[in-house]
Design a protein around this nucleic acid. Structure first.
Length: 443
RNA sequence: GUGGGCGUAGCUCAGCUGGUAGAGCAUCGCGUUGUGGUCGCGAGGGUCGCGGGUUCAAGUCCCGUCGCUCACCCCA
């Protein structure tokens, strides 16, 4: 009985943390008018293939019956588990275009699967919380600014600490590289992206090794090092003296996004001209999100604009979306920052059982508490009270209810944290609001 | 997919040049016979990942295999 690598399973207290994140994220998504949606777990493999970089080799194929060896060992699976929520959504939009109202805003919180090698914070099965907006033919550019601001609002309500959403526009490096005569845009981006890891000298060396001149490498590096929380990046790029129409488009688009961010969430959005990653279908704006002080965790929320992912050949539905890596975010906060829940069960009260004959009385107490919205459970055995208290203590249940412990056969309730025990009436007792549900604890 | 590290109790690990499997924590019981946490005493719990080889003898050495893990790749 060993865990399967990359398929994480949580303990109840950790799951409470994850649920709190889920609830908060969903609430914020709905506050912004995103409609709920769920798509099936599988797509035809042909629809998943070729959508991004090395994503192809990460697709889990699904054979229809596990016991059918001829299917397991046979040709390529016809169905594959989705590796993100954007590709299935694009397919869904095409299939349901006649029933949807555009621009269509939806959120989707689901498991996705990628067959990569697991590592800390990288999983084969994980949950993404995704918002997207698609429109018919044209998509208003202001939506590109809205996406990260919704995320900023959700993160602002969660115990994630400070965070930065880095924004770039793929047209900037693309136009810039073309402007200086570097035609291998993707290859150049791939090398430049290692800047943090291997440093500028090594990046320059690799660019030259890939065929760039010293001057081209110098300029590409100079572009990658530009970042600003205001519009200063535009002047910094211009100062490099490179001209290309695609570069101009990118700069205008990014400036528009950053300008909105400066007004609505100062300091959160950062124009960072080295951000280039994400899947191949992104065509313009791209986002990555890092928690301040935990940059080595990688991005916990990414996305971008895709102009041609959803197209039936006649009509194109451009979209923009962003996706929170919920599993990575929660796992790392729990593992590295000690985030946890105040208890491992929803029960706020354990109703003690005096003896087997009076269990029905304890059941009645529990029913009355539940009717008033207090989560509770009845002790599993009529063990000694010390054991029943310990049962509650080990689960973090704050209160133990003792039927008939008071005068005139009245009940008493004990706060086992303080040891304080007092008379209580099940019809009127108020559970402190802070104890009603498990709370999230940040060390 | 490529390369390194590691597999011994539920968890974290010790176990030397091969010689009858250990500790701490956790769990359960008792002390304390219906009000926990501390403390003391005790108990249960192991095909040493799996398979093969060397040897009188393998947790220990050799080979294979599976798994976990870290880095690369890529990504949430």
């Amino acid at each position: 009985m060993l865990p399967i690598s990359g398929f994480p399973e949580l303990l109840p207290a950790e799951r409470f943390v994850e649920l709190h994140f889920l609830d908060t994220i969903r609430e914020v998504f709905e506050l912004h008018g995103f409609a709920p949606l769920e798509t099936r777990a599988v797509e035809p493999t042909s629809r998943l293939l070729g959508k991004g970089g090395d994503a192809d080799k990460e697709i889990y194929g699904v054979s229809r019956l596990a016991g059918r060896s001829e299917e397991r060992s046979g040709a390529e699976a016809e169905l594959g588990l989705h590796f993100d929520l954007t590709v299935p959504f694009a397919r869904y939009v095409l299939e349901n275009a006649g029933k949807l109202a555009f621009p269509f805003r939806r959120y989707q919180i689901q498991k996705v699967w990628r067959g990569e090698r697991p590592q800390e914070g990288r999983f084969r099965e994980f949950t993404q919380a995704d918002i997207d907006v698609v429109d018919v033919g044209e998509l208003a550019p202001h939506v590109e600014a809205e996406m990260p601001l919704v995320i900023a609002e959700a993160f602002g309500r969660l115990p994630v600490g400070e965070f930065r959403i880095q924004v770039n526009n793929r047209r900037i490096p693309e136009g810039f590289y073309l402007g200086i005569g570097l035609t291998d845009v993707a290859g150049t981006l791939r090398i430049v992206d290692k800047l943090d890891k291997i440093g500028p000298e090594e990046v320059a060396a690799q660019l030259v090794a890939a065929g760039a001149t010293d001057e081209q490498a110098r300029l590409a590096l100079a572009l990658a090092e530009i970042r600003s929380t205001d519009l200063a990046f535009v002047g910094a790029v211009r100062a490099l003296g490179v001209a290309h129409p695609t570069l101009d488009e990118g700069l205008d688009a990014l400036a528009a996004v950053i300008a909105v961010g400066m007004e609505r969430a100062p300091g959160v959005l950062v124009a960072d001209l080295r951000i280039a990653r994400g899947l191949d279908y992104y065509t313009g704006t791209v986002y990555e999100t890092q928690l301040v002080g935990s940059e080595d965790w990688g991005s916990v929320c990414s996305g971008g604009r895709y102009d041609s992912l959803a197209s039936d050949g006649r009509t194109t539905y451009p979209g923009v979306g962003i996706s929170i890596g919920l599993t990575r975010l929660v796992h790392l906060l729990v593992a590295k920052r000690g985030l946890t829940a105040s208890r491992s069960t929803p029960a706020a009260v354990l109703v003690a059982v005096v003896d087997d004959a009076s269990r029905s009385r304890s059941d009645a107490v529990a029913a009355a508490l539940r009717a008033r919205g207090v989560p509770c459970e009845v002790a599993p055995t009529a063990a000694k009270f010390g054991k029943q208290i310990r049962y509650a203590d080990r689960r973090g249940i704050p209160f133990v209810w003792f039927p008939g412990a008071g005068d005139d056969d009245g009940d008493q309730v004990k706060d086992i944290r303080s040891g304080e025990q007092a008379d209580a009436d099940v019809a009127t007792w108020e559970c402190p609001a802070a104890d009603l549900r498990p709370s999230i604890i940040t060390p």
